[in-house]
Amino acid sequence: MLKIVNLQKKYTTDEVETTALNGISFEIKPGEFVAMMGPSGCGKSTLLNIIGLLDNPNSGEFWFLDKEVSRSSERQRADLRKHHIGFVFQSFNLIDELTVQENIELPLIYQKLSGQEIKERVNEAMEQMQIAHRRNHFPQQLSGGQQQRVAIARAVVSKPALLLADEPTGNLDSAHGREVMELLSALNEAGTTVVMVTHSPSDADYAHRIIRLLDGQIVTESITERHAARVLSPEF
């Protein structure tokens, strides 16, 4: 799915140069569920932004779907995002002026699909996230858990190969957080590659693999216990 080789990212302000990522290399295979953990400022969100093609590295290689994309133009990256990547944010980032249904159809509008196809796909996503009954509500009228389900529906409505989640349960209580994690897990099982940034060890436990960062470098990579158990179980 994606391969990162010796990635460097530096931020320069007037006087200070901060190294956010320092020689990172790893690979994620299709169908994987990877969690990235580490203390605040360790570079995990920067890494997620680069993977999501929202930011550019200073050096190193980034292969996405067998293409080197670290030097792609904004237009090419927008096209890749549009067709292959879905995003889920901690703060949901729904557009307040649009209803649930309109928020979810947004990515499809930019794909220029037919009205009928948009309708079908949005209905499907809403059913899947169990928010169809709220289709005409505005974001402010929903609970946090419902808002995040809408955000996930929006992220998956275009059936992306890669789903990126930046602390998806950070703004939710534990019950709603679990609900969201179950949804992400189900999506992964259905074939979507998921990369998630999180502080929560219990959320990270839903992943197959945990990449731990510190000061812009990978310190450990480990298989989660749950995944290890599943891999070792007779049904796997």
Binding site: A78, F87, N93, L94, L106, Y110
Partner: peptide, 16 residues
């Protein structure tokens, strides 16, 4: 700002 960011995330080009 949020709307702009979000639209870009889901693939909107600047011209759009």
């Amino acid at each position: 700002a949020k709307e702009v960011g979000l639209r870009k995330v889901v693939g909107a080009h600047r011209s759009q």
